[in-house]
Simulated scan of single mutants.
Amino acid sequence: MRNLGNTKLWCHLSFVSGVQFTNKEIRESIPAKIFSFRELVQAVAKIANHNPDYSLFFRGQLKDYKLNSGSSSFYPTLFRSPGRSLSTRELEERYNKLEKCTNDLLIKLDELDIDSINKLKKFPELPWSILQHYEVCQTPLLDFTHSLRVAASFALNDAVDTANIFVFAFPYPNGTISYSTEEELLNVRLLSACPAEALRPHFQEGYLLGSFPSRVKRKQPFLDFGRRLIAKFEIPKKGFWNKDFHAIPKTALYPHNDEIEIICEKIKSKNGT
């Protein structure tokens, strides 16, 4: 994907200084502290207003993972290799496993007589998005959401003290799957990609994004979504939610009796992922 380069962006650092910053400065910065969900919504609204050319997406994480350079980093699972290099052979093995899991998923969905099966067969990124979202195997895609409440709930549900919300700037999506050749990005709207039998996407407002073209021979810096980071916030476990704005419980984010989840768990077990 293309980075935001030296473009000056209005971000979390701008609240104090009133000036704009580059993506590099944003990635190396300390998150701004936000103390309530209402405050977070207001902060993001201001960032969106100052950056109208981009559609904002969110990730909630316990930690701000950084490269040795000190820059926040967000690689898709297929390209992650903490503390070591990723060999070409290992990357190829991961792609092979992804292909096997994809074939297994399409076979299972075909057996269920899924309405959208032809579309899933035509665009490999669509079954990849299901495999990634249900955590079946490593893929070249990374989970995002359009919902701040979903992102904050994910971040804080397992937090002890604090967590992080990250804001990213992408092209505006269009349809089930959007390919931006200019930005070298693809964007899958999970709700449209998944069969109606999949419950989880209905509650998570999820999108899966990746670099385009989506298959590369080795890990490269252009695969890091930190290149699209526009803001980051630290939020507290205590006092963040109130009677007007409350967290989405895990039971809602991961609903029971999800038929696609059952299929994905079988594929995961079969392929040892």
Rank of each mutant, 00 (worst) to 15 (best):
N3Y: 09
L4C: 00
T7Q: 14
H12C: 05
H12I: 06
H12P: 04
S14T: 07
F15V: 10
V16A: 14
S17C: 08
G18K: 04
T22W: 00
K24W: 06
S29W: 08
I34P: 01
I34K: 01
F35M: 12
F35V: 15
A45Q: 11
A48I: 06
P52G: 02
Y54S: 03
S55M: 10
F58G: 00
K63A: 11
D64N: 10
N68M: 12
S73D: 09
P76A: 01
T77N: 12
F79L: 08
R80I: 08
S81R: 03
P82D: 04
R84E: 08
S85A: 14
S85P: 11
S87I: 05
T88K: 14
E92F: 11
E93M: 10
E93N: 10
R94P: 02
N96H: 13
K97Y: 10
L98Q: 04
C101A: 15
C101Y: 09
T102W: 05
T102L: 06
N103A: 15
D110I: 10
D110S: 15
E111D: 14
E111W: 09
L112E: 13
L112C: 13
L112P: 08
D113A: 13
D115L: 14
S116R: 06
I117Y: 04
N118H: 13
K119P: 12
L120I: 09
E125F: 12
L126T: 06
P127F: 05
S129D: 06
S129G: 06
I130N: 05
V136F: 03
V136K: 02
D143H: 02
D143P: 01
F144I: 04
T145C: 03
S147F: 02
L148A: 02
L148R: 01
R149V: 07
A152R: 02
S153P: 03
F154E: 04
F154V: 00
A155K: 00
L156T: 01
N157F: 10
V160H: 13
T162G: 07
I165D: 00
F166S: 06
F168E: 02
F168H: 01
A169R: 00
Y172T: 12
Y172D: 12
L185W: 04
V188Y: 06
R189I: 15
R189Y: 15
R189S: 13
L190E: 03
E197I: 11
L199P: 12
P201T: 05
G206W: 02
G206R: 00
Y207R: 06
L208K: 00
G210F: 04
S211F: 11
S211C: 10
S211E: 12
R215A: 11
L223Q: 08
I230V: 07
I230W: 01
A231H: 00
A231R: 02
E234R: 09
E234D: 09
P236T: 02
P236G: 05
K237W: 05
F240K: 00
K243Y: 09
K243N: 12
F245K: 06
H246M: 13
H246Y: 13
K250H: 14
T251G: 11
P255S: 02
H256D: 15
I263G: 05
I263V: 08
C264F: 03
K268G: 08
K268Y: 07
K270M: 10
K270L: 11
N271T: 07
N271M: 09
N271K: 00
G272I: 03
T273W: 05
